[in-house]
């Protein structure tokens, strides 16, 4: 994988801007349920869920230099686990969700042992193959998973007996809280010494090894962490849609989330969130007006690649840096 030079612009001014911008942004997010219709609110929920999903993949693609084409496996396995536990055993959200995240983590441990031996395009393909195996289980094990038709009628979670999340606004805050937590965790990881070690591995594994880092262990940890956060996104998605089907872990979804990351700008965290939101909005906006939305998305991919090869956020950063220099 080519190294993406993206030293974070961590100036004092930048930090101040973030601190100043945070409260209004938070306020806006908190007040959205009272400004938007239920349908638009649903689109925002999807944007948040896919943002988290894309950011979790960015930890691998952008920060560690591991392009995975099987990330939907963890999204889907968590979704199936949460759905099955809710439907068959009646488990509530506080038990089903941790169990689902553990299922994602265990799958990542297993797949990691196989996949981490490879690099670059081979890594891309082995993650694809492994996710196809997971898809095959969801598709083929009909007595458990319902096969191709999936499992409908999964209940919306309730926090406790008094606070069910059937109301769309309450559910929005539920998603906002978890996506916020996941994002915070990712931001902390990326800014930690561990995060910088991952960047080092992206730039040069040999150098990191020479410095005494156990490269494999770092990659393994990143792989499992990314899977757990993808699993969180998958859980939220299953509660949102109230059904799960093999489509959740199909290769198309893995490709989609990888493209969201690249489109927004790999290695920037905020970029993949922008990319994910953009795709969700485009898919729902354009398709109401034209059948040719697939072509439009194709054109957007090409335009971004040609004129902003580092993605949308990479482009913005380069501009900012160019302006900062006298």
């Amino acid at each position: 994988m080519t190294a993406l030079p993206s030293k974070p612009v961590r100036s004092r001014r930048g930090a101040a801007a973030v601190l100043l911008g945070l409260p209004p942004a938070l306020l806006a997010l908190l007040s959205l349920p009272y400004l938007l219709s239920t349908y638009d609110l649903g689109i925002v929920v999807q944007m948040m869920i896919f943002s988290l999903f894309a950011m979790s993949l960015d930890l691998l693609v952008g920060f560690t230099g591991m392009p995975s084409l099987g990330h939907a496996a963890y999204f889907g396995i968590a979704a199936y686990t949460a759905g099955l536990l809710a439907l068959k055993l009646g488990w509530g959200v506080w038990f089903a969700m941790p169990a689902a995240l553990i299922a994602s983590a265990l799958t990542a441990v297993l797949f990691g042992f196989l996949a981490l031996r490879t690099r670059g395009s081979y890594f891309l393909m082995i993650t694809l193959a492994l996710s196809q195996v997971a898809w095959g289980i969801a598709f083929g094990w009909r007595s458990l998973t319902g096969g191709d038709d999936g499992m409908p009628n999964i209940p919306r979670p309730s926090l406790d007996a008094h606070w069910p999340l059937t109301d769309d606004r309450a559910f929005y805050y539920f998603v906002l809280a978890f996506v916020g937590l996941g994002t915070l965790l990712l931001v902390r990881i990326v800014a930690s010494p561990f995060g910088y070690a991952l960047r080092g591995i992206r730039e040069s594994e040999t150098r990191m090894r020479a410095l005494g880092y156990d490269v494999w262990r770092y990659k393994f940890a990143a792989f499992v962490l990314a899977a757990v956060l993808a699993g969180l996104a998958g859980c939220l998605y299953v509660y949102y849609n109230r059904f799960v089907s093999p489509d959740y872990l199909q290769v198309v979804r893995s490709a989609e989330v990888l493209l969201m990351v690249i489109l927004g700008g790999a290695g920037t965290l905020i970029g993949p969130a922008i990319g994910a939101s953009l795709i969700v909005v485009l898919e729902n906006l354009i398709s109401a007006y034209t059948e040719r939305w697939l072509m439009m998305i194709g054109v957007i991919y090409i335009l971004v690649a040609m004129f902003a090869p580092r993605g949308i956020m990479g482009f913005i950063r380069e501009r900012l840096r160019a302006r900062a220099r006298p």
Binding site: S37, T38, G42, I43, N241, F243, Y248, E283
Partner: peptide, 21 residues
């Protein structure tokens, strides 16, 4: 008119668009 793409989650979202929007 809406396009479900033959995908369940997309179809559900588009149905919501038709019904709620």
């Amino acid at each position: 008119y809406e396009d479900s793409e033959g995908r369940p989650d997309v179809g559900l979202t588009k149905t919501k668009a038709l019904v709620e929007r």
